[in-house]
């Protein structure tokens, strides 16, 4: 039942469609060993993501969505199954696929420019400075190039991390609740900034969140994950054009559909 619903959306059942996938997760299972007991975290996850697609992984805390993202990025070896990018099995982290942590990943010992240029060691000095300046502008941090992270707000640090990731020109971005630590107004701003950047650069984005609104506002598809062990419960196509009207009936219908799918009533 679960497999069937996942397959019907991803088209995994048809080899032609899966071959076109940028990133594929095949029968992925992850189990942790805790005090001698085996704790299954993810069970038989199958997913295919198209090139340039924006996919949100949505689920309650502890459902294994971060674990799934870490396995896709190569930080974690799956217990069973595999992850493929461009048909190649993922065996570790790779600069072609950058993981954006919450703003915690910014290096405190480097300036904004130093952080953004971190992955550009192979370029010449001028080339690097040009690239850094381009992404400083893209995330709107002009004038802060020489600032250290502790002088920046949470939202600005998050911009630094996104810029650092984009600067190495990756195919895929993994974002693990990137705006979770920000206040709600900054979060809204960062969402539209991210969409603007995504529309300009067309990276494949996998975005973990526990915020239903965030998922429906951002994603082409929302992958709803159930808890313990984490399984794909449903994949929802968000057939809304950007910029999205978040009070339109279609938006609300999609959001409410996911709400009830997760088992939450519409009232508090």
């Amino acid at each position: 039942m679960i497999r069937a619903s996942a397959d019907s959306f991803t088209g995994d059942a048809m080899p032609r469609a899966s071959a076109a996938g940028k990133l594929r997760v095949e029968n992925l299972g992850v189990a942790f060993q805790r005090e001698g007991a085996t704790l299954p975290v993810l069970d038989d996850v199958n997913l295919s993501v198209r090139d340039g697609e924006f996919v949100c992984l949505l689920g309650p805390s502890g459902c294994g969505k971060s674990t799934l993202l870490n396995a896709m990025a190569g930080f974690l070896q799956p217990t069973s199954g595999q992850v493929l990018v461009d048909g190649e099995v993922v065996r570790g982290p790779d600069p072609r696929r950058i993981f954006v942590f919450q703003e915690r990943g910014v290096f405190p010992w480097l300036t904004v420019a130093g952080n953004i240029g971190f992955g550009l060691g192979k370029l010449s000095r001028e080339e690097r400075a040009k690239r850094v300046q381009h992404y400083v502008q893209m995330v709107g941090l002009q004038g802060f190039e020489k600032s250290y992270p502790h002088e920046l707000s949470g939202g600005m640090k998050q911009r630094v991390e996104v810029a650092r990731a984009l600067a190495v020109n990756p195919d895929v971005l993994f974002l693990d609740e990137p705006f979770g630590a920000l206040d709600s107004i900054t979060r809204m701003v960062m969402r539209s900034e991210l969409l603007r950047i995504w529309e300009a650069e067309r990276k494949t984005i996998l975005f973990v969140t526990h915020d239903i609104d965030e998922a429906v506002q951002l994603a082409d598809r929302v992958v709803v994950i159930s808890a313990r062990p984490g399984r794909i419960q449903q994949i929802v196509d968000v057939d809304l054009q950007h910029p999205r009207d978040i009070s339109s009936p279609r938006y609300l219908k999609l959001r409410d559909g996911i709400l009830s799918q997760i088992g939450l009533a519409h009232r508090i």
Binding site: G92, P93, P95, G105
Partner: peptide
């Protein structure tokens, strides 16, 4: 913090460069 090490590895740093940078 593990995030620094993971970020360093993500940008393709080999052990010696990871230690230095």
């Amino acid at each position: 913090p593990a995030v620094y090490i993971n970020a360093g590895r993500n940008f393709g740093l080999k052990p010696v460069a990871l230690m230095r940078r």
